[in-house]
Design a protein around this nucleic acid. Structure first.
Lengths: 154, 154
DNA sequence: CGTGAAAGGTCTAACTA
DNA sequence: TAGTTAGACCTTTCACG
């Protein structure tokens, strides 16, 4: 069976393995999926050039580096302040993600900080662009390190 | 200058490089940070064992695989349904992240799906546990692939 | 997609500041 | 304690079947 972009079962297996350990040597990856090292490398290069694989990232424990606070800020931002806000956005270092959501020009920001004072500072800097509503993260009971679940149901 | 966990400037450089390209060979990584391959490998192993580096993941383009819908669901869940919900959570395949937030036993779920029908199905399955409020992601104007910004300000 | 040889990376251990 | 060097081994790459 062929999937989107002509991705087959072998590609799916490769993606699962690399999602869990991006540093796997091609030889070992090939062993796991049942392919020679060169055939494996060829498929990985194909997946990279199709942008199915976007890159390889080390997952860094920000808490261990002193970034102990994660929060979500929902910013309701009326029409006029939309474009200036998007320009301002990249200058906000603590903002790791910004999503534009359905429902009244709302943005959801995921922010990571090392003190509550920094959170207060961030909120103040957002005020000119809209009304922020902040929720701090108490715990993260689920964070799938990988997309293996989704890949299984392809 | 020494930082949390005895992390110094060289470690910081290593983390930045690996955050951007987890597959860099130690030889090349060493060249970039000014260390021999074996000294580089030693430091990386140290960072791994301290759990500063949690792992290496291929970043997979879910849209290319047909998962075209991302949404956030906020679930307000009263005391009695809290524990059953946490048990139910891992069985929900589309849920990529779940955060417990301040403010009235609320959970924020990030979900990835391939159709609106699946979103409706998910929402129905959440109903026994609380009141879900769903916002679909229209666009993601900022998604830092790496934590380089945060690492710079260490 | 597999094979094989050359190039280059990794690993371990002994050595040095 | 932390880094370098050296040599054995392994991986990657690429031309060819």
């Amino acid at each position: 069976m062929t999937l989107a972009y002509g991705i087959d079962l072998l590609d799916k297996k490769i993606l699962k393995e690399l999602a869990l350990d991006a540093r796997l040597p091609f030889a070992e990856l090939g062993r796991r999926v049942g392919l020679s090292p060169s055939a494996t490398a060829e498929r990985v290069r194909q997946l990279e050039s199709l942008k199915v694989i976007r890159g390889y990232r080390a997952e860094i424990n920000l808490e261990a580096l002193g970034y102990s606070i994660t929060a979500f800020v929902r910013l309701t931002c009326d029409g006029g302040r939309y474009r200036p806000f998007l320009k301002f956005l990249p200058t906000l270092e603590p903002v790791q993600e910004c999503h534009h959501l359905t429902g009244g020009d709302a943005f959801l920001l995921k922010v990571v900080l090392s003190s509550v004072a920094q959170l207060e500072d961030l909120i103040e800097r957002l005020l000119p662009y809209g009304s922020p509503t902040t929720s701090m993260v108490l715990s993260t009971p689920l964070e799938r390190k990988q997309v293996v679940g989704l890949l299984n149901s392809l």
